[in-house]
């Protein structure tokens, strides 16, 4: 107890070494933070933030919290920033930050408010903590040969003593976070999109018309889906009318450019494939030849 009283009486005098460390690393931390906000490339932002976090870790060590300094470097710069870089490489590297302001004047307002906030809080803290006593942690976590064992033991005594319930809840939080991340990033395949040829054939034979429908434009000069098929007597085949499209006489259709190119090219509206898509309201699976899953 005498050690505690002595420490409380004298306090801690911040030495020259710590002053030098502060004045070297504080600009590094500030530059890292500013560089993170200002750099347009997200990967550069992450690397700037690593500089800031490393400096903060050194500050923790200097301020008699070596365990938290190590945890800062291991957890933040080691794990969290690597996670950030991982997601950046997966997601946001090519998505450049847009410079368009969605709210007019938001950027200027944010900067002005930030400067005001920093001035207010900085001045308030500077005035309020001006003659704050620095008791130091020597009495609690000791030095070499002191009564207490060390920083880790001091933290453990509090963590597993007063804060043990919070510690347990934190464990539950980490479990929930891990399960939640798994659930959020798990990509479920859409079931039932691809059906085999057997299933599609069976579904077709369940309808009252198993044979191929006459495609539009079979006996006509046009390739459009609006041009219905013709019956052998020259009349229009009602079963070839496309759903949702008014049948148009061939003479009223605009002439297509080159028929040969259209046949060789991609599936186009008006071909027989598109007409097949209208069987049973289009529920018979993917249209052959026009999409995935078509037998070749």
């Amino acid at each position: 107890m005498s050690v505690l009283a002595a420490a409380a009486d004298t306090g801690v005098v911040i030495g020259t070494g710590e002053t030098i460390v502060f004045w070297v690393l504080a600009p590094v931390a500030l530059a890292g933070a500013l560089g993170m906000v200002l750099s347009r490339n997200a990967v550069h932002s992450a690397l700037w933030l690593v500089a800031t976090m490393l400096s903060l870790g050194v500050f923790y060590v200097v301020q008699e919290a070596p365990f938290l300094g190590a945890a800062q470097i291991i957890v933040y710069t080691g794990a969290i920033m690597i996670l950030f870089l991982f997601v950046l490489m997966l997601v946001g590297r090519e998505t450049s930050d847009s410079v368009v302001e969605t709210l007019r004047g938001q950027r200027v307002a944010a900067i002005v408010l930030g400067i005001g906030f920093a001035g207010l809080v900085g001045a308030g803290v500077a005035r309020g903590a001006e003659d704050l006593p620095v008791i130091g942690l020597t009495a609690v976590q000791g030095t070499e040969g002191g009564p207490a064992a060390g920083n880790v033991e001091a933290i453990a005594a509090v963590l597993y003593g007063r804060f043990v319930l919070a510690f347990e809840v934190t464990g539950a939080l980490l479990i929930v976070a891990a399960v939640g991340a798994l659930m959020l990033t798990h990509a479920e395949r859409e079931p039932g999109v691809l059906r085999s040829q057997k299933e599609r054939s069976r579904a077709r034979f369940l309808t009252d018309r198993p044979q191929t429908l006459p495609g539009p434009g079979v006996y006509a000069r046009a390739n459009s889906i609006a041009a219905p098929g013709r019956l052998p007597d020259g009349g229009l085949a009602p079963s070839s009318f496309a759903t949702g499209v008014e049948p148009v006489r061939v003479d009223e259709l605009p002439r297509t450019g080159s028929v040969g190119i259209e046949r060789e090219g991609l599936p186009h509206a008006g071909g027989t494939d598109a007409a097949l898509g209208t069987i049973g309201g289009g529920t018979t699976g993917p249209v052959p030849g026009s999409g995935e899953g078509a037998p070749r």
């Binding site: 504080a26 933070a33 906030f117 809080v121 900085g122 903590a129 704050l132």
Partner: peptide, 20 residues
């Protein structure tokens, strides 16, 4: 130098983060 320097540095870093 006192511990106030750390507090002011933390305030400035917080502000930069908020503006970001």
């Amino acid at each position: 130098m006192t511990i106030t320097n750390y507090l002011v540095l933390a305030a400035i870093l917080f502000t930069i983060g908020a503006v970001g």
